[in-house]
């Protein structure tokens, strides 16, 4: 019995020590982790608006837009590039399931609802094949694509999008996600723009 108590006490002490030290490290790293995640988003927004980088007087604001009309209240985060009171561009995130897991993409839209750039934020596609969606020659082609003039299909199916060779599924996933995001944006453009004009607080970076 005494032996059993000793075992239990030792194990409890070790577990408490572990939990305490983990709680301490967690509190230390909580801030930096949140900061890194935010920084990643902000960098992605900057990357999809290469034309505005470093321009004087341009600032970034962000806001949640909730689609309350449909009753499902699906909210999306929107990032706006503003100069004075004018909205130069809007960026938003889309997510889809690719071959190996979720793919997260930042899409930037500027005037006339044309894409100014896209950036793959996260993915877990196969290295060497699907992972090539992060290569410039693939994602660059989405620049200036829009809803009216672009045929949203792969080249081999008669569309305007070149696929990554050997990675049809990843290419289609990115294409459809960007297209779906663009459709959402153009359907709710008025509401989103109204938000854009109202928010003032710039994003810290």
């Amino acid at each position: 019995m005494r032996e059993l108590c000793r075992l239990a006490i030792v194990l409890t002490i070790i577990c408490c020590g572990a939990a305490l030290s983990l709680a301490y490290v967690y509190n230390l790293t909580k801030g930096p982790i949140a900061y890194q995640q935010r920084l990643k988003k902000i960098r992605a927004v900057n990357a999809v608006f290469p034309q505005h980088e470093g321009t004087q007087g341009v600032q970034m604001v962000d806001s949640l837009y909730c689609d309350d009309e449909s009753g499902t209240a699906s909210c999306r985060q929107f990032y706006f590039i503003k100069q004075d009171r004018e909205v130069l561009g809007t960026a938003f995130e889309v997510a889809t399931s690719g071959y190996g897991g979720t793919i997260e993409i930042m899409v930037g839209v500027s005037g006339e609802a044309a894409i100014s750039g896209i950036k793959i934020i996260n993915h877990s596609e196969t290295p060497g094949l699907g992972a090539n969606i992060t290569k410039e020659q693939f994602y660059q082609q989405f620049t200036v694509k829009n809803l009216t003039d672009t045929k949203w299909d792969l080249r081999k199916d008669g569309g305007d999008i070149d696929q990554v060779s050997g990675a049809t599924i990843s290419s289609i996933a990115v294409m459809q996600a960007v297209h779906e995001g663009l459709v959402f944006f153009s359907d709710h453009e008025d509401g989103i723009m109204e938000k854009a004009v109202r928010v003032e607080q710039p994003v810290e970076s």
């Binding site: 983990l22 490290v25 967690y26 790293t29 930096p32 982790i33 890194q36």
Partner: peptide
């Protein structure tokens, strides 16, 4: 876990 958290942060 410490390694995991520190890597996520830095």
């Amino acid at each position: 876990t410490i390694t995991d958290l520190v890597m996520a942060a830095y």
